[in-house]
Design a protein around this nucleic acid. Structure first.
Length: 284
DNA sequence: CACCATGTTCCTTG
DNA sequence: CCAAGGAACATGGT
């Protein structure tokens, strides 16, 4: 699920529920996800601490905590990897098979589960040091974007996945943004014209903000699932009813382009699937 | 069994 | 030092 929009919706969801809650104990079931923090360090830092502010940076969730009689403020950093989820559960509810870290909050538990354990739940804030600008903020200007893209001759699709170029765009929204901007994914990043970069800049903002709006308006408990604020789990998911017409090209190989009817094509770039319309997104 | 998957990082090569 | 490609990570779905 996890690109910027999904993380943003999750952050907004948790922001209404976590602040004010105090951590009674910490259970680390998969130490790999807290690296390089140790289980003892995490315990020491979090036990007795209360959630205050929750923010997002790229695809990272940033939890700030405070503790009475302790001036040190803690920052907990989360990342969902490919398959991570975070949600609150009643204390009595059974834990999911792949619960990686569980925080005891009293009546409820805050669960980070991750079937593949690619994600993170750690005190290591340096993970975010190399991130590029936030695409929905002013720091992401057309000129910044253009200056960055000049440095690379790799295909533009590949550079959109580079979190140091712009933070938060993943494989789905990279294809979606290029479709909206009508740019071929194979175009070398350093050969885009200024007008094309401008289109892409706008397309990225549009695609991400539309997805946030979409994720904010669909019901969260669809199909009897846990309320975790997430809204992408593949086309076979219960949420697919809400999904029609949302993504224009991603995972639509062979289906007609919504703009011109030409079959959508799938290619592989940097070992990831890319979807595009060969007519609307023709190379110059 | 084979292949694919929403992400990041590390290693190697040039 | 940088760019670029590929493997690795771990598991589940088709």
């Amino acid at each position: 699920m996890p690109e910027l929009p999904e993380v943003e919706v999750l952050v907004r969801h948790l922001r209404r529920r976590l602040p004010g809650k105090t951590i009674r104990s910490v259970s680390v079931r998969r130490p790999r996800v807290i690296r390089p923090t140790s289980a003892a360090q995490l315990q020491r830092a979090l036990r007795g601490a209360t959630f205050t502010r929750i923010t997002r940076r790229g695809k990272y969730l940033v939890f700030e905590l405070a503790r009475a009689g302790d001036s040190a403020r803690r920052t907990l950093v989360g990342h969902l990897g490919m398959t991570g989820r975070m949600y609150l559960l009643p204390r009595a509810a059974p834990l999911p098979k792949h619960a990686a870290v569980v925080l005891d909050l009293g009546r409820r538990r805050f669960v980070y589960e991750d079937a593949r354990y690619f994600g993170r739940f750690t005190l290591e804030t340096a993970l975010m040091a190399t991130l590029g600008p936030e695409p929905l903020e002013r720091s992401f200007s057309v000129s910044t974007f253009a200056r960055t893209l000049r440095r690379f001759r790799q295909p533009i699709k590949v550079k959109l996945l580079d979190q140091s170029v712009v933070a938060g765009v993943g494989n789905i929204y990279a294809s979606e943004a290029l479709f909206r901007a009508r740019l071929a994914p194979q175009r070398p990043a350093n050969r885009l014209a200024r007008a094309e970069i401008q289109r892409l800049h706008r397309a990225i903002q549009k695609v991400l903000s539309e997805a946030i709006r979409f994720g904010s308006t669909i019901p969260l408990n669809h199909g009897g699932r846990k309320s975790d604020g997430l809204f992408y789990f593949g086309k076979a998911d219960d949420a697919s009813d809400y999904y029609v017409e949302r993504l224009r090209v991603y995972d639509r190989e062979g289906q007609p382009c919504p703009r011109c009817g030409t079959p959508i094509r799938r290619i592989v770039q940097a070992a990831r699937g890319t979807f595009y319309c060969p007519k609307c997104q023709a190379r110059p």
